[in-house]
Amino acid sequence: MVETVLEVSGLTVGRQGEPAVENVSFSLAAETDTALVGPNGAGKSTLVQALLGILPRQAGEVRVLGAPLSPGGRLPAAVRAQVAYLPQQVVVKGRFPLTVAEFVALGWEPSGLRLPWSHRTAREAAVQMALARTGCTDLADRLISALSTGQWKRVLLAFCVVWPRKLLVLDEAQAGLDPQAAEQFHSLLFDLRRSEGWAVLQISHDLDMVRRTCDRVICLNRSLRCVGSPDHALSPAQLERLYGRAYVPYHHHHSRAHG
């Protein structure tokens, strides 16, 4: 049986008093790549932030690798270390005296109190490897405040892959990547799933990419609208239900441009 990495049941999350996500249930198995799609304001980021414990939830249960997420958003440290999250945007204000290699090293260290120089050799080797896998080796000595949006995404991915994980949550990770970097990104995700059994949950607006690379799609518009294979969940009828009638012509135009 394939291991269940994430189980969400009856999750409801409010934002400023309004319910942003209502009664959402789904689960993720190891080695799968699941896309979370839906229009702007559908609650996609809210949903992933709530299941990571970043936003508080109003109701429902979240289990990561079998361990329940506490109401305060805490997970056992051993479980937490196996989860990585790539936020939509990290805003660095002003010159931030931290190099890319130092930043990626922060993803390696297990949680808790630790002196900066402990496990140095193992950590540096892991950082080198992560930088190489994400094509960031030449950025190692760059300050994080001097990165472009696309470079930041790759560096954040290096931060995620520097330590062995089971669950990777991506919030529009591909936005801002050039075609070559996007291709490298997908092949790395594929590799992590197949060889290391990672489960990937990614928010995306790029439905062509979702069709090509994901094996499951969750459609969200405050509540779950459909869950299934890309062929089923992204069929014209389902898309019209999710995005409204206006979306469909835009979508056709979009696929022609790429076809």
Binding site: G73, Y85, V90, G107
Partner: peptide, 18 residues
Amino acid sequence: RRSQILVSLDAGLAVSQG
């Protein structure tokens, strides 16, 4: 050190790292 840097950078990223 690790917590200090992560909290300074992005609270969400810090929470996701425990």
